[in-house]
Amino acid sequence: MPADRSTALPAVRPLLPDVLLACAVALVAALADLYGPDHRTAFAPYWDIALAAPLALRRRAPATAAALVAAICFATWLTGVIAVAAAPAVLIMLYSLGAWERRRWLLALALVVAESGVIMAVARWTPHGRQWLTALMATGTVTAALVIGLYVRTRRAYLASMIERAETAERDRDHQARIAVAEERTRMAREMHDVIAHSLAVMITLNDAVAATAPEGPIRETVTQASEVGRQALSEMQRILGVLRGAGPADLMPQPGVEQLTDLVAIARSAGLTVELSISGEPGHLAPTTQLTIYRIVQESLTNVLKHSRNVRRVTVTLIHRENRVRIQVTNDGEPATTANASAAGHGLAGMRERTTLYQGRFQAGPTRGGGWEVLADLAVTDPATAA
């Protein structure tokens, strides 16, 4: 299970930027003590350096660094030294605590200590006429520093959470794609077993019968050789089916054809759709694989209507047989699928397109002019195995 990015902060935090920040605060404060107009004691630069030093640990150990800054500030108050680095060190530490410290009781304690320091500093060094205003401004400043740190931490946690959600969504999408592929492979294995493997078994049986009754000679030898080739093909087919099925068992029930379209439409009607089935023309002899392709295209089209269309009042399924081709048209008058739903149905549309291409056909699916959705497939009824 992935770690929670909102609470699991990096184990190793950058040290060099914090060291450089501490050095910069110490240098500026020391120079201000040495050359500024408010220079009061020769020891002030050392206090400034001591106050700036804990800033190097502000992200690696924010609580320890804050305690050191508080202790040094209290020492300067006791000795009466006005350190230039006191204000920036306190504000930086409060910000760092808000941004990196997760213990709420410690954050509350830091705010209380900072406010106590403000009161003590104002009482000792601020003239009486300006104490209330100075205390109010200092209180707002230290509170703002802590609040800004908390906001930065919350924002960082929010961004980490969004990244994790995106990664989780991507993993779920890939998982669903793998499931869809596995289901399609299982269905392909089932269809190959019931149609192609069955046809091979029948061919082998007929050849064996001819070989058993034919007299010795070239005919018997040719038929026997044909039976052996058929057995090899059947063995190879079984090996391919094992790869397609994977570890899961496959359903080996007989596969449906054109005659089962009535049952399919009845199932769709029981789900609440108003479906009309129209078959015209003379179908002639259709190979089992061709009938299965027609059935699957109609089945997938009706499934997409149930899953992705809204406010559907009527669905029309039309089969038109003419010479050596068959035209399949499934239309509905509902609202077209949204972009998200259309994306989710992408595997079904891709499967129908592949089945149509296998039969030298044309496939298209999309919204109609008057509203609704239409699936149109035009297939050659010649069995592709025979054509090959």
Rank of each mutant, 00 (worst) to 15 (best):
Y46K: 02
W77P: 06
G281R: 00
F363K: 13
L91F: 05
M137Q: 13
L57A: 15
Q299Y: 07
G98W: 08
A226V: 07
S309T: 14
S280C: 00
M352W: 01
W100Y: 14
I49M: 11
G334C: 01
A344K: 11
E374A: 11
M237A: 14
E300Q: 10
K307H: 15
D4S: 08
D251I: 14
I328H: 02
M93A: 15
Q255H: 04
R231N: 03
E354L: 13
A177Q: 15
G257V: 05
I328Y: 09
G217V: 13
T356Q: 07
V298H: 03
M93R: 07
P37Y: 05
I267Q: 13
L306I: 05
S301C: 10
E323I: 02
E335T: 15
L358A: 14
T293F: 06
A67D: 10
A201V: 13
A70L: 11
R322A: 09
H175V: 02
E276H: 14
P367H: 02
H347F: 14
D333H: 03
A250P: 04
L97P: 09
A250R: 10
V210M: 06
E354K: 04
A66N: 07
P215H: 01
P283Y: 01
L27W: 14
R322D: 15
M192N: 07
A71N: 01
M253S: 13
E191K: 04
T7C: 06
A66Y: 13
R355T: 04
A52S: 01
E115N: 11
E228Q: 04
A89T: 05
A53C: 12
R124L: 13
V315S: 07
V381E: 01
D172E: 12
L379G: 01
L200K: 03
V122M: 12
A247E: 15
I82W: 04
P14G: 05
E216D: 14
T79H: 09
E170R: 12
A85M: 03
H39E: 01
I279R: 05
R185E: 10
T290S: 06
G372N: 04
L94Y: 14
R5V: 13
A85Y: 06
V112P: 03
L261F: 03
P14C: 05
S280D: 01
P256S: 04
E170F: 07
G36T: 04
I279H: 02
A65Y: 00
L349W: 01
V152Y: 00
A138D: 13
V265G: 05
H128C: 08
G129E: 15
A365K: 11
I320Q: 12
E101H: 15
I204E: 13
A226I: 00
V122A: 08
A89Y: 03
G248N: 06
L133T: 08
P45H: 10
P367G: 09
A99T: 08
L302Y: 09
N332V: 06
A182L: 01
R165I: 06
R239L: 08
V330S: 02
A70I: 12
S343W: 11
D383T: 07
N332D: 09
L107N: 00
R190W: 12
